[in-house]
Design a binder for these strands. Sequence first.
DNA 1: TTGCCTGCAAATCCTTTGCATACTG
DNA 2: CAGTATGCAAAGGATTTGCAGGCAA
Lengths: 153, 153
Amino acid sequence: MLNYTYEELIKHFKDILKKNSLKYTKQREVILEILYKYNKHFTPEELYMQIKNEYPKLNIGIATIYRTLNLLEESKMITSISFGQLGKKYEIAIKPHHDHLICDMCGTIIEFEDEQIENRQLEIAKKYHFLIKSHSLQLHGICKECRKKLKYS
Amino acid sequence: MLNYTYEELIKHFKDILKKNSLKYTKQREVILEILYKYNKHFTPEELYMQIKNEYPKLNIGIATIYRTLNLLEESKMITSISFGQLGKKYEIAIKPHHDHLICDMCGTIIEFEDEQIENRQLEIAKKYHFLIKSHSLQLHGICKECRKKLKYS
DNA sequence: TTGCCTGCAAATCCTTTGCATACTG
DNA sequence: CAGTATGCAAAGGATTTGCAGGCAA
């Protein structure tokens, strides 16, 4: 699924830090590790909880989570999507580009890729003389499991 | 562009209010009127300013703006899109469905519709046994005008 | 007249910032 | 050792809520 090993990811991160005279700290390492390991979307708060759980001895503040997420996003190592009221979620950015199906009942996120849609987007941009830097496609609705639950209730 | 007249819109709104034992007030009317008249995206703050401008005598608080926008969104009379750090913007929902090209330099929003993408989305949903309720497609980048500015600077 | 709506201000929630201390390179 | 990073608490900004008075039905 992921096209980098953890070691390659860390190496890439260290390179970015070096280029910007920034430092490699335990906190930054752990944040990246959790995002890599679980390979799913986290809110800052969820990430904070997970770290508290797995590394109870590590002293880390929520401010560091926010600062590090911003740093990682600027460095394009992670990406974020907005969920309206639900806030912002982050995920590791080393997967091929993909879009999201989001279940409004249980919050499950299904990822998909579709070349046809990607190509069509380029044509649309061309028509408006628009230079696309990124895009975000979210399909909201009800997932397979929740549809079953609805049927039986 | 819009497929309802203002009168039809107000009638529809009054129907919704009546069904829910809610009341038709000057504040609610003005908010809807501005959204209809300008037919563009507003943040709650921008909407508040615009109303203060056009109706200086009308006493209205920002809390009412928020409450009314939430009400209108629940009633599907308006829709919102998220702009990450930049907050949430609302627009009247009585146009045919469309997606957005967003210029990250000047904030301009271009609307477009594309049947091919819509159809493809349905196929994807089918594949995952997912029931689509809505979707949101945003292409971020740099618009025609800003690209010119970049060239000459 | 009833009970929903409103403005106001206070309260919340999420995120960022200032500062003194701790740590990396 | 210099300069960056951290935790903590305070500050900030956006949105929501409680309340007493105002207004629509």
